[in-house]
Simulated scan of single mutants.
Amino acid sequence: MDAEFWHQRWQTARIGFHREQINAQLTQEWPTLALAKPSQVLVPLCGKSKDMLWLAERGHKVSGFELSPLAVADFFAEANLTPTQTAVGPYQCWQAEQLHIYQGDFFQIDKFQAHHLGQQFDAGYDRAALIALPKEMRAQYVELLARLLKPGASLLLITVHYAPEQQQAPPFSIDEQAVFALFTPYFTVALRSKMKEGHANPRVASGELSFFDELCFVLVRNSEE
């Protein structure tokens, strides 16, 4: 689960976690957040997700963070955008229109803040970040999100839930109880929906997994004491 693991996944195109379609729970739940336009939206471990295009089309300024330069290059190429590139702290920033993707290690973001006026974000979106992290890294990740999001900021979080003994590789199963345990020190947490994929999921259909659910949460950053 180190950087080389993810570089290899992108280099060998083993990116089953990537989705060509805009996430249905994003389109359903994001409007309920009633964010001002433009809002600064954080998308950690963003890959080449087309969800970022959807967010930018809603009038937001999107800041994605992604380790793999291949993923970043693919994102802009597939979107038919020609980005500019500049060095910002420990990152290479690729920018086109409302979209900024910072290529590098998300966990080096303290160095980014020193170069970027220490800004906090108005909102965040996580569809495939938390579930990509092994258990021992999740508390550090959540603490980073808490520092990066303004008090009152909303975070739309999507996780997956399956019988964890049936798979020990990402995407990891993170159920409702785990989300509440991780986030309630910093956020007010609400489960919005549970999408049961059932046999629509090929791994359930093949018998590898007995069930596979997609959970959607809305979290609001608590006021800092």
Rank of each mutant, 00 (worst) to 15 (best):
A34H: 12
K196F: 08
L99V: 12
A96C: 13
G89K: 04
L155S: 04
E176H: 10
D122G: 15
Q85E: 13
D110I: 12
L157R: 03
E225V: 10
T159N: 03
V179Y: 14
Q177T: 15
M52D: 00
Q28L: 15
A71H: 09
L33H: 07
A153H: 05
G64M: 07
A114E: 14
I131F: 04
Y91L: 11
L53S: 09
E78F: 10
T159P: 02
G89T: 00
A146Q: 03
C46W: 02
E97A: 06
Q11H: 11
V218H: 00
S223E: 15
R147Y: 01
A169W: 01
C216V: 11
L42G: 03
L53W: 06
D51Q: 10
F112G: 04
P151T: 05
Q177W: 06
L145P: 01
Y91P: 12
L191Q: 13
Y102G: 11
V189F: 10
E176T: 15
A56G: 11
H100I: 00
L182Y: 12
Q177G: 14
K150V: 07
Q8S: 12
Q85N: 13
Q119P: 01
A132C: 10
L130T: 06
N23V: 11
G118A: 07
R14M: 09
E176W: 04
F217H: 03
H18D: 08
P134D: 08
A36D: 15
T27C: 14
